[in-house]
Write a protein that binds this DNA or RNA. Structure first.
Lengths: 152, 152
DNA sequence: GGAATGTTGCAACTGATTCTCAATACAAGG
DNA sequence: CCTTGTATTGAGAATCAGTTGCAACATTCC
């Protein structure tokens, strides 16, 4: 059994809940996906493997996975909540280009000491960190510049 | 005229749009509010001052204010987009307690050097930074502990 | 004045997420 | 292998934040 299964199972057990087949299918798929996904993406993927999972169950399982620390919110996009698995991954910063929509990631570790310090200062018990930065990626910046020059 | 009015007016003019009365009421209220707010909050506040603004107009004006750099997204809460005005304010970190919902803020400045360095590394032109941290505030942590002790 | 263009309130709509509910599964204790 | 209590599920209905179409206005520029 994968580590993340053990963790999820233990987490559920702690709340008197069980690791059922639908939950297991969802969990597996979450860790097979290596990009951000929304509930519908995840549902579609799971559907390829089995019919024994409904969209409602996906929506019900996602919060459990987050509470278990296996999944975190990623940047919301086009009106949909997005997620990503985090177990075994260092947390990261998301850079969202508001022109082309591309998302890049960088490491959050470098920021952790300062964040830790602030958390201590206000005595906050951190679960989940989400650092999202919106702006323009270099490709789009380049294009914008070209167009600008053309116009003049 | 306030600085932010000038900015908004200039921004609108640049797009062939005008600073109309409804937009002006909304703008004023945004800068009178010193907490996070969602569209409905803002609408309710504006309603206290005038009847000449509809909720639809609030929803239509908010994206303009963001594009003008006067307002930014804050942490989404209970299914609603939240905002805050930012003109003249240093950006900050949001600490959201997932038990009591309280939001605290700390200064983002301390983190800027590292963020700036990463931005340079991927040649990203930053507009908007949103650092949201979910967890448990010290008050709730205290309560949780007490309950735990009682149970045992 | 009158055309052209931007703006607004209202109400209808959209679409993601949540909820309801009746049917199932499953464990524990006979 | 019944019985009972509790957790779980799929399907579809309900909800509700946010968006949009539209007819009526407002402004500006001939």
């Amino acid at each position: 059994m994968q580590d993340y299964e053990k963790i999820f199972k233990a987490f559920l057990a702690g709340k008197g809940l069980k690791l059922t087949m639908p939950r297991r299918y969802i969990l597996e798929e979450v860790f097979r996906l290596h990009e951000h996904f929304n509930a519908e993406d995840l549902y579609a993927k799971v559907k390829l493997v089995t019919r024994d999972v409904s969209l409602a169950t996906v929506y019900r399982t996602l919060p459990l996975l987050m509470e278990a620390g296996l999944v975190q919110h990623a940047l919301r996009s086009s009106g949909r909540d997005r997620f990503e698995h985090i177990y075994g991954h260092p947390k990261h910063v998301h850079w969202l280009c508001r022109n082309c929509g591309a998302i890049q990631e960088t490491d959050l570790q470098a920021l952790m000491p300062v964040i830790k310090k602030q958390a201590d200062a206000i005595r906050f018990k951190t679960d989940d960190i989400e650092l999202s930065i919106r702006g323009i990626c270099w490709k789009c910046a380049l294009l914008e510049n070209e167009n600008h020059i053309e116009k003049e």
